[in-house]
């Protein structure tokens, strides 16, 4: 038996190694959707226990009507100064309430979630934290879950939870400061403003930029048609620590 072969052949198409696709198409207009926001950037209420910065797969409930002055960050993976100035830079709750009030979105989930994705235990996030958050959001009737990562590992943890939500039947998008990680980890939809780790949702105390990033990301949930799509957003903020 003979097979004609060659040495020196090279594969011609680069294939990233990604998890299997998950996808829930959005079936109603934004103005009728209930939105939840989750973050892996270590946001929690000041009265709650802080996260263990060495790695923590627990999560904290954040009521959507809480004043943002009662929120804070515990995260060792990036410079916290932007969030200390304005928590909306990672968890844009004030902007979400404005979008609800103006009718751009239908409503907000009563309870949203913060966790600290840095150094996150992949199995725990995949098997416990992700499904638990997804089940709670689904039970609240959430249609769209928007999330932010934080550092590199945070993006991984955020995407694990995001994928759990998508699997549970909600359409999700990650606002990614590190889009290559989001993509490699299998994020269903990715928006990518030019922002640093730590201000993933936009420049602190710049409501116009934060609103624009949120609105564009929500619109992308409507327009994106297939798994793994990524859109770079035209907003840029640099901070020098």
């Amino acid at each position: 038996m003979k097979l004609t072969t060659a040495t020196g052949l090279k594969s011609e198409v680069f294939a990233p190694v990604t998890p299997p696709p998950v996808w829930t198409p959005l079936k109603k207009p934004l103005s009728e959707c209930k939105i939840a926001f989750i973050t892996a950037g270590g946001i929690h209420q000041k009265k709650q226990d802080p996260f263990n910065t060495a790695g923590d797969y627990s999560y904290r409930e954040i009521p959507s009507d809480i004043p943002t002055s009662e929120l804070m960050v515990t995260h060792g993976g990036f410079d916290n100064s932007d969030i200390n100035k304005d928590v909306n830079a990672m968890f844009p709750l004030d902007r979400l309430r404005e979008l609800r009030d103006e009718g751009f979105i239908g409503s907000l989930a009563g309870t949203m979630y913060g966790f600290m994705g840095g150094g996150g235990n992949v199995d725990k996030f995949r098997e416990e934290t992700g499904p638990a958050i997804a089940a709670s959001l689904k039970a609240q009737g959430v249609d769209i879950v928007v999330c932010t990562g934080g550092c590199g590992t945070c993006h991984r943890s955020a995407v694990i939870v995001e994928r759990a939500c998508e699997e549970a039947g909600m359409s999700t998008i990650i606002i990614a400061a590190l889009p290559p990680i989001a993509r490699q980890q299998g994020a269903p939809r990715i928006s990518a403003p030019h922002v640093p780790i730590g201000s993933n949702a936009g420049e602190p105390n710049n409501p116009a930029m934060q609103t624009a990033i949120l609105k564009d990301s929500l619109n992308l949930v409507v327009s994106m048609q297939h798994f793994g799509e990524m859109q770079v957003l035209p907003y840029e903020y640099r901070h020098n620590v």
């Binding site: 294939a15 990233p16 696709p21 297939h226 798994f227």
Partner: peptide, 10 residues
């Protein structure tokens, strides 16, 4: 490609 796996090596 936006998706891939380890078998897509040729």
């Amino acid at each position: 490609l936006v998706v891939g796996n380890e078998y897509m090596d040729a």
